[in-house]
């Protein structure tokens, strides 16, 4: 099941390279802050398509129309994520506050326990926030559904907590490996070019600079958008595996 999700998402994200380029261009303007929300908004649309679709279905890529709706969806996602993220942060701060009042072993022990609890809370809140976003998308974008804790918990119970966490760990591994592999390959190619140029007695620094530039361009325009769509699609599909 999990492998099917990955396979479908990997294929789905590679469907339309124009979308990837557009996302890359938007991400360049992210320093204006507003475009950053357009990207999250687009990811929300991908999730929205996924939760209403099926694994290995022929879902089309979402369109780039209705910029304002996209922006609002992006803001909604960020709000949901921040609210869920607040829980572990507050837990950690409370423990830190208590620990700062104590001295010696007790302080260290409290801090250690606090960090552990905060970490568990972080994992759970990440899971809940992603599922909350899916639940929100499934219920036509009602923001209150993203915080309907009991309903989201039921959804995760049906999918299985273990499977959810495994899927997320897999997603992180795939993301890291893919980006590492791509940058390493390009880096290697240009290292070979540079070394051979150096052997021929040419100044090789230009070639290395070109390699770095191409690496950055490919990461922003292709790999970054690809991975973000891949992640959103996978999470959306994971939501649909509930019975």
């Amino acid at each position: 099941m999990i492998l099917d999700i990955y396979k479908d998402s990997l294929e789905y994200s590679a469907k339309d390279w124009k979308t990837l380029i557009i996302l890359g261009v938007i991400s360049i303007f992210s320093f204006l802050l507003l475009p950053a929300f357009l990207i999250t908004g687009y990811n929300y649309r991908v999730i929205n398509t996924a939760v209403h679709g099926i694994i290995n279905g022929r879902d089309p890529m979402p369109e780039f129309d209705g910029i304002i709706d996209m922006f609002i969806d992006g803001v909604k996602i960020v709000v949901v994520q921040i609210v869920y993220l607040l829980v572990p942060v507050v837990i950690f701060l409370i423990f830190a506050l208590v620990a700062s009042q104590l001295i010696g072993v007790a302080s260290t022990a409290i801090m250690l326990i606090g960090s552990l609890i905060a970490f568990v809370a972080l994992v759970i809140s990440c899971l809940m926030s992603q599922m909350g976003i899916c639940h929100m998308a499934y219920n036509d974008g009602a923001l209150s559904k993203a915080f309907a804790i009991s309903e989201i918990k039921e959804v995760i119970d049906e999918i299985g907590w273990f499977e959810c966490i495994i899927t997320y760990v897999g997603l992180i591994i795939i993301t890291v490996v893919l980006s590492l592999v791509v940058t390493t390959i390009i880096g290697l190619i240009f290292t070979v070019f540079g070394l051979s140029g150096f052997a021929l007695g040419v100044d090789a620094s230009g070639i290395f600079a070109l390699g770095a530039l191409i690496n950055i361009l490919i990461t922003t325009f292709i790999v970054g958008p690809y991975l973000s769509i891949f992640n959103s699609r996978s999470i959306g599909l994971l939501y649909t595996t509930q019975i």
């Binding site: 304002i68 709706d69 922006f71 609002i72 909604k76 219920n139 036509d140 974008g141 009602a142 923001l143």
Partner: peptide
């Protein structure tokens, strides 16, 4: 209207 946040995007478009 499905969601109350639709009011916000409607307000932005208006």
């Amino acid at each position: 209207m499905a969601s109350i946040t639709d009011n916000i995007s409607e307000g932005l478009k208006y």
